[in-house]
């Protein structure tokens, strides 16, 4: 564990908790993409299957359980909670997220390190995580006016990605044989998707204005 990875995990954790807290306390999921949340639930469910097969640390297992629990709770709130579900922007959140799942699955079947069930699903989760934010970014563009919490959620997620890249550079320099092309390329693609959002986020922050994305 290095400081970059810890900072990445903590911003990731904060992003999910900000979202869950927003939904739980103000009973609203306005501006939140259910499609993205469902994709994250699939990402965690397919990546963390190794909970049953390998043990790394208490920290690792605990965080996995938190991410699984929080992502499925958010999906549950948005789909089934009687007040929250009414605030969901159903008409705006129209991204065909299944069109992301299938190509990622095909890619994982073609490009992986080992052709085993767990390994292919693990690789699939990396590919899917890289693009899972897309429905949320599209929804932000459509609704344009973004409340602070949704903005902070995406900002924290982007921060998590940034810290993970620093973590990989650090590990590459300090650990022998630390080369993981699939993880790195998927992670880099994911981080680049945030670049546009970050640009407008900092603009609004600099000008002390409410965040608005161009149509």
């Amino acid at each position: 564990m290095n400081i970059f990875r810890l900072a990445g995990d903590m911003t990731h954790l904060a992003s999910v908790l900000v979202l869950l807290l927003k939904i739980h306390t103000i009973k609203s999921c306005a501006g939140v993409s259910l499609k993205t949340q469902e994709l994250y639930a699939i990402v965690f469910a397919t990546r963390y299957l190794d909970i049953f097969t390998s043990f790394y640390s208490i920290y690792n297992t605990l965080m996995k359980l938190i991410f699984l629990g929080s992502s499925f709770s958010i999906v549950w709130y948005m789909r089934y909670h009687k007040t929250v579900r009414r605030t969901y922007d159903r008409e705006q959140d129209t991204f065909r997220h299944w069109f992301l799942v299938l190509p990622c699955l095909l890619l994982a079947l073609l490009i992986h390190e080992k052709f085993t069930f767990l390994e292919v699903l693990w690789t699939f989760s990396l590919y899917l995580e890289a693009v899972a934010i897309l429905p949320q970014l599209v929804l932000l563009q459509r609704t344009r006016n973004i409340d602070n919490l949704t903005g902070q959620y995406v900002f924290l997620l982007g921060g998590y990605r940034g810290f993970y890249i620093l973590n990989w550079i650090y590990r590459y320099l300090t650990e022998p044989h630390f080369v993981h092309w699939i993880t790195w390329i998927a992670g880099l693609v994911q981080t680049l998707l945030y670049a546009d959002f970050f640009y407008y986020y900092f603009q609004s922050w600099k000008n002390n204005k409410k965040l608005q994305l161009p149509a």
């Binding site: 995990d9 965080m63 590990r171 650990e175 022998p176 993880t183």
Partner: peptide, 10 residues
Amino acid sequence: PNDHSTKDEL
């Protein structure tokens, strides 16, 4: 070397 050292990441 452990060739699956990324698996200890989240």
